[in-house]
């Protein structure tokens, strides 16, 4: 086990290497992204304030991510509730198909949506990115919400029915509060996925780029790379923050249901 532990720690170093290097270059005075480091500066962070195209890309991404996260979580609630509480004909096939984007390469989702949009004579834009992101976030939302609904004791809902509540009021007053941590976690994860997704946005974004699409175009200009490092540092810190909050909510949900926690979203 001792050698295994050493290996595990080395593996974590491998996993975290890019993220650890990021702030080093973001605060480095040199415009060349390489060692040795030359000095400390916050210039690249202040430079971000002047790139107005980036601001509109950021705003666009936020709009898309919030909408996609809400839609994916709503679809996720329906899907997870149906698959955990009920048995219906064709259940395996239907659920399998809904979860398919989890393994399908994103480029396939992107090009197939693109051809349909063009064939219908529509033009791409934020709406089409939202449509694609909702599709790929829904399986993640379902995976998280499945465990929240599975942990829910059905006798609590039965008690509410017996006390005269309707299906709708039971859902609102009993089910929803109990699965709330799962819902928050699903929202945050979907938001994070959408904020970071590149390929679907690249194909479907039209004239207004999302933040990753804009970032990708920045990578071609060596002059802009230090600013990319600064932006990346901010994004990584925010992602880690969001994911940590999501994890806290997920665990709280598992604890509320009295489940043994095994960790992990997937």
């Amino acid at each position: 086990m001792k050698t295994l532990k050493t290996y595990a720690i080395l593996y974590l170093v491998f996993l975290y290497a890019p993220i650890f290097l990021l702030p080093l270059f973001a605060f480095n005075t040199s415009t060349i992204i390489a060692f040795p480091l030359t000095g400390f500066t916050t210039e690249w962070f202040t430079a971000l304030l002047d790139i107005t195209e980036m601001h509109s890309a950021l705003f666009n991404s936020l709009k898309i991510a919030v909408t996609s996260a809400v839609l994916a979580t709503i679809f996720g609630i329906f899907g997870a509730m149906a698959s955990t509480r009920y048995h219906f004909p064709g259940q395996k096939g239907i659920m399998g198909f809904i979860m398919l984007p989890l393994v399908l390469p994103e480029i396939i989702v992107a090009v197939s949506l693109l051809v349909v949009i063009l064939k219908l004579g529509l033009s791409t834009g934020s709406w089409s990115v939202i449509a694609g992101h909702t599709l790929i976030c829904t399986p993640f939302a379902i995976a998280i919400l499945n465990s929240a609904f599975a942990a829910l004791d059905p006798s609590l809902e039965e008690a509410a029915y017996d006390l005269g509540e309707t299906r709708a009021s039971t859902f609102r007053r009993v089910t929803l509060p109990l699965v709330m941590p799962g819902i928050v976690s699903a929202l945050l994860i979907s938001f994070t996925i959408s904020m970071d997704e590149f390929i679907i946005a690249f194909f479907l974004t039209g004239a207004d780029p999302t933040l990753p699409v804009y970032l990708f175009s920045m990578l071609r200009f060596p002059k802009l790379l230090p600013a990319v490092m600064a932006l990346g540092t901010i994004l990584v810190v925010l992602s880690i923050l969001l994911i940590t909050i999501a994890e806290i909510f997920r665990r709280r949900g598992a604890k509320r249901a009295g489940l043994k926690d095994t960790g992990g979203f997937l």
Partner: peptide, 17 residues
């Protein structure tokens, strides 16, 4: 769960970066 969480964190950070 802490180990699993540590392993998954890098996955959630910007893929492009």
């Amino acid at each position: 769960s802490l180990w699993i969480f540590l392993i998954t964190i890098p996955f959630w950070t910007s893929y492009l970066i």
